[in-house]
């Protein structure tokens, strides 16, 4: 029983980090109707940036985000402007191919710079833990969770309390209508993409602090993140939050009560079950069109 409670707590804490990574993905889909296959690679890139800052300049992982997040934001904006904006026809499919190409390039560059060896992030709070009752919690899980909460709260404020956020939400509801009422949808798209990637930098740091990784780790990640946003309903932020927490809790519990080998399978099987019951995901709307 204690093991299960422990698994649930770990699920919630890591689920928060996944929510952070998935929110960028679902936000970008919501605004642009594109699926950013490179999201997994951005996570790993973020982790490596933090790794490099810590190794070479001895900058604390959390402080380093003040550098990596702006850098990743600029990278995201550039990618949107250079590679995604020019796509006019078959946008959805071509954007998948483009972002996949970006993922390959990121993976290639990381492999050359850091080799394919598995690395871990190091900081005192990664190895230390504290006790609540009978449970031991690593500081890093708690810090990572808190970081996610803070950033997601920031994202919420940005979306619901600012003029820019209003344009983002309008673009999510109806791109064409947003254009008609004078919103510069392309600019909103570029900034949203940048924000999505910047959030990923933070997510990557938190991910890398709890999991060993190498440049190829992005495949497993992207499959999970995609599953999460489908489950939550594509384009739904709150859906992504709920799905992240739910999936990670279930995965962790499965690992304890059954076996770690099958825990990832459960993750995907759940997706199948939910799609049979509710094709639009938990909080999504059905695609399709009437007149």
């Amino acid at each position: 029983m204690e093991l299960i409670i422990d698994a649930i707590i770990t699920g919630i804490l890591t689920g928060g980090v996944y929510a952070l990574m998935a929110s960028g993905l679902t936000l970008v889909f919501g605004v642009m109707e594109i699926i950013n296959i490179a999201q997994g690679a951005f996570v790993i890139l973020g982790a490596y940036l933090s790794y490099a800052l810590a190794q070479h300049f001895h900058i604390d992982l959390f402080l380093g985000l003040l550098i990596t997040m702006p850098v990743m934001f600029v990278l995201g904006v550039l990618i949107q402007v250079l590679f995604i904006r020019p796509l006019k026809r078959d946008r959805t499919m071509l954007s998948i191919l483009v972002t996949f190409a970006v993922a390959l390039i990121i993976e290639g560059v990381l492999t050359i710079l850091f080799t394919a060896n598995i690395v871990t992030l190091k900081a005192p709070y990664i190895t230390q833990s504290f006790r609540i009752g009978n449970f031991y919690l690593s500081y890093i899980y708690v810090y990572g969770f808190l970081l996610s909460v803070v950033l997601l709260a920031g994202l919420y404020l940005l979306l619901y309390r600012t003029k820019f956020g209003q344009s983002v939400r309008a673009s999510m509801l109806n791109r064409t209508a947003a254009q008609l009422i004078g919103i510069d949808v392309e600019r909103v798209s570029a900034l949203t993409f940048g924000i999505g990637v910047a959030l990923t930098a933070a997510g990557g740091m938190a991910f890398g602090a709890t999991t060993a990784f190498n440049p190829g780790s992005s495949y497993d990640l992207i499959s999970r993140l995609l599953t999460i946003i489908v489950l939550g309903g594509m384009g739904s932020l709150s859906g992504a939050l709920i799905a992240s927490l739910g999936m990670l809790i279930i995965e962790n519990v499965t690992a304890v009560v059954w076996s770690p080998t099958w825990s990832s399978t459960v993750f995907f099987v759940l997706l199948v079950v939910i799609l049979i019951l509710r094709p639009q995901g938990l909080l999504g709307k059905l695609e399709g069109r009437k007149q």
Partner: peptide, 22 residues
């Protein structure tokens, strides 16, 4: 070299899509 091949392949993707989207 491992990484270089990935980069070139990625660039090939980008070139194809951006130059010949149809």
């Amino acid at each position: 070299q491992d990484g270089l091949y990935l980069i070139l392949y990625g660039v090939l993707f980008l070139v194809v899509i951006l130059l010949l989207p149809r």
